[in-house]
Nucleic acid binder design. Sequence first.
DNA 1: CCCTGGCCGCTTTTT
DNA 2: GCGGCCAGGG
Length: 794
Amino acid sequence: MSNQWAKDSLSLRKKILETQYARLNGKQKEAVFHTEGPLLILAGAGSGKTTVLIQRIANIIRYGNAYESTEFSPELSETEYELLTRYAAGDEGVDRRAADALLSCRPAKAWQILAITFTNKAAGELKDRLYAMLGDEGNDVWASTFHAACARMLRRDADRIGYTSHFTVYDTDDSRRLMKDCQKALNIEERFLPVKAILGEISRAKDSGLSPKEYAKTAGSDFRLSKIAEAYEMYQRRLREGNAMDFDDLLLNAVNLLESSPETLDYYQNRFRYVLVDEYQDTNRIQCRFIKLLAGKWKNLCVVGDDDQSIYKFRGATIENILYFEREYPDAHVIRLEQNYRSTQNILDAANGVIANNSERKGKTLWTGNGEGEKLSIYTADNEQNEASYIVDVLIEQAAKGRSYSDFAVLYRMNAQSNTIEKNLVKSGIPYRIIGGHRFYERKEIRDMIAYLSVINNPGDEVRLRRIINEPKRAIGDRTVNLASEISEGLGISLFEVLTHADEYERLQRSSQKLMGFAAMITELMEFNAAHEESLHELYEHLLEKTQYIPSLDPHSDDTQTRIENIHELASNLLRFETEHDEVSLSAFLEEVSLMTDIDNYNAAAESVVLMTMHAAKGLEFPYVFLPGFEEGIFPGFSALMNPTEIEEERRLAYVGITRAKEKVYILHADSRMLYGSTNRNRLSRFAQEIPEELTEKSRTRQWEKLDSSLRRPEDAKLSRAATTQSAYTIGAGQANPSAASLYFPGERVSHKSFGEGEILKVTAMGNDALLEIAFDTVGTKKLMSNFARLKKI
DNA sequence: CCCTGGCCGCTTTTT
DNA sequence: GCGGCCAGGG
């Protein structure tokens, strides 16, 4: 083969590959084609980073390092060269598989690729898109969260670190219960050291890879720290005794497993030729170590992150990891993705304007080809009620224009803000969903059911055993359980074991029948599970029957019906799990459940407005975004005001919030706000003021709403007059086309097809439409758009 | 053992 | 303003 021939072949190969990924921009292509060695992708919001990740994986599987490699094996024959020439020319008749085989250079098998994300949702999306692109082979890619990947490794080799493969994963609530227990046993007053504080400290210790012993050394003579060390020691011992791990243990134990077992490390290092990590700015130290270990052999490690979107510092995430990456891998290739495909230029300029005030950043300026778009609107409300009703008004107005409710998101700083907005949405009959708040798996009845299943799976789990031992009431009180627990501690056996032979212990004589009855029931359920392992829903039915949980619920309580529905909902979840998974077992189900969160169930297609925190919204996008509570003391939050680093973290959160929007951002703030039962006056957030003025449009509470406000105080009136003169009304200015408005008058009676009959209280012109406030006889007062409402006069 | 009334306290939280 | 948690009486 002549040099010229080889050169031609290579350039032909490049040309073909380029056309395969023609829809990507230059930087994106660079990221896709650079497969070997460490790679850092700094990807701005909306820069198509998920697409890049997926295409990159697909490229590795299809073509390997074909683009950058100078080797071509085997050497091309003349017919093969011709085949490629035709392929390059776009000839449809070419055998694609044959051509791909010729083009590729050391492609990887799908199972050699590990892609780590932070949410199950992101992992699921990755899996789905890989499947769509690669078919069944796509399923072989390990696409999972850090925690799920660790759990999977630990299940396999649990015995190597002193666990059984049926170990239970504790969530925050379980951890708290356990810690409370430990504090009681160690006489550590909660007012001296709150549960949360100790757990936070332990979490930090685990992040640094410190065992209880090592932590105790660092504590030195500090009294508080040494108490925490004691608590840590006991907490960890109890977890181990219960064959349980908390979230941090999943990572810590996985790292310990890899570091202590050379065979295991070897196996995974050889296996994972390519490792990809999404949202790298949110990784903590232990996650960084985990990744480093896995990618240790091939060093084909690609991390994607955006320092400007680092909003989990408070949980141990450290931007250091990005800086460290370049230090650890000096030959790392760095690619910046700055072209945004999501938002308008105005939105990006606003976000850029805000984030530019942060000093600690790598520096990056987003731009887009999407055009300027609308200005951001900044609305000043009198109070939080008015802020909420403004959101509702805009929603109604936009819905009247044919916008779908699912195009809107309300993103706030803290969950407590959702209440007022929720009530206003209910009042107007607007469909909505709240992400966060009470999650399905956090409801009491569901937690109880999960606890039963956990105990059946792992009877050593004392925390969950205690949760259900008297639920429903079996006349087994705390005293008895504590007594039994002490006995078990003394004998070094599990609490459950003590319960099974309760009559053998004199101190338990009085309640031994009840304890043994309970233990026998659990044993029976365990046997049932062993005999019908594939049928989780049957086990569940049996469990409900045996425990008489549903009949025990108070029939006079308002929420009993909802609880029963939730219990049945869990049954369908079990059934769904059985049909969706090849390998069905109780442990597998419990593992999935323990790592699941609310956001995973978010479905963008559902026809409703979505409410969530800005944290939860990361990675999502919406045409219209409302950002209520842009006030000093709310956002940035009260405790961040005095602390420059925390202010910077809040500012990044503001950046995340603004960049969620594709078309329009509504920033809202209230002159006075009731929160936690007391009213405060807050100034407009600095973040709103950091947006260049020419990008914004300001407005404030309209007169007709002010008249309506019963909460109004004299000083408000004065304030609003001053503000009104300097800023124009934008939305729903009163002097629009009066035609629709003149159809209806206050006092008239009308009928609506779902709300029934009512009396018009107020009519306000809005564009060609009119906003009607109607007091319905049965469903209360609602605001409706007249064109939309199809009212009949009576 | 279990129910009820008063009191505290309260960012964000992918897992 | 509301819910979770503990103490005391039934």
